[in-house]
């Protein structure tokens, strides 16, 4: 199959790749670009483990074609920490033991960051509904919700 050339921006870096037209952005990130932080739990947009930002909107990378990324801006979990400093959400997830196996964690972090960027002071209910597209099978969500709420508080204090 002939491949398509795509130029895009990922975590602030210009990136070029070749992909087949039926490959998803998730396939490209993981298999072509070795950005394996985005996880595939379902391939159908039902688990949120592949959450990334596409032109500032939270999406599932498994529901985006690789070819669609032309001239877009993509942010992934790999771009969340800055240098040797974790994002407050990452730090709070650790402090609250908000991960057990950790497979859903990158997706939750990207989704939670999108929430706090849009709504710095969410209620518990708002956090729960915003994150309803991210499945976690280990934690029962309790500690994840607490970590997000705590990170929001801390980030408001810094702002």
């Amino acid at each position: 199959m002939t491949q398509t050339h795509v130029s895009t921006t990922i975590n602030g870096d210009k990136v070029e790749y070749l992909c087949e037209t039926d490959e998803t952005l998730l396939d490209v990130l993981r298999d072509t670009l070795s950005l394996t932080g985005s996880k595939e739990g379902c391939g159908s947009g039902d688990c949120g483990a592949c959450s990334v930002m596409l032109d500032g909107r939270l999406v599932c990378a498994c529901l985006v074609l690789g070819v669609e990324a032309q001239d877009r801006k993509i942010e992934t979990i790999e771009g969340m920490a800055s240098g040797d400093e974790l994002h407050p959400l990452q730090q709070k997830f650790l402090e609250h033991a908000a991960l057990q196996c950790g497979i859903c964690t990158p997706g939750f972090l990207v989704a939670a960051k999108a929430l706090l960027d849009e709504n710095p002071d969410p209620t518990e209910t708002e956090v729960r509904y915003w994150l309803a597209g991210n499945l976690c099978r280990c934690t029962g969500y309790d500690k994840i919700i607490r970590a997000v709420m705590d990170a929001a508080t801390e980030m408001r204090g810094q702002a």
Partner: peptide
């Protein structure tokens, strides 16, 4: 329709 992620698309 779908999750926050799906709403983005």
């Amino acid at each position: 329709i779908g999750s926050t992620q799906v709403q983005g698309r």
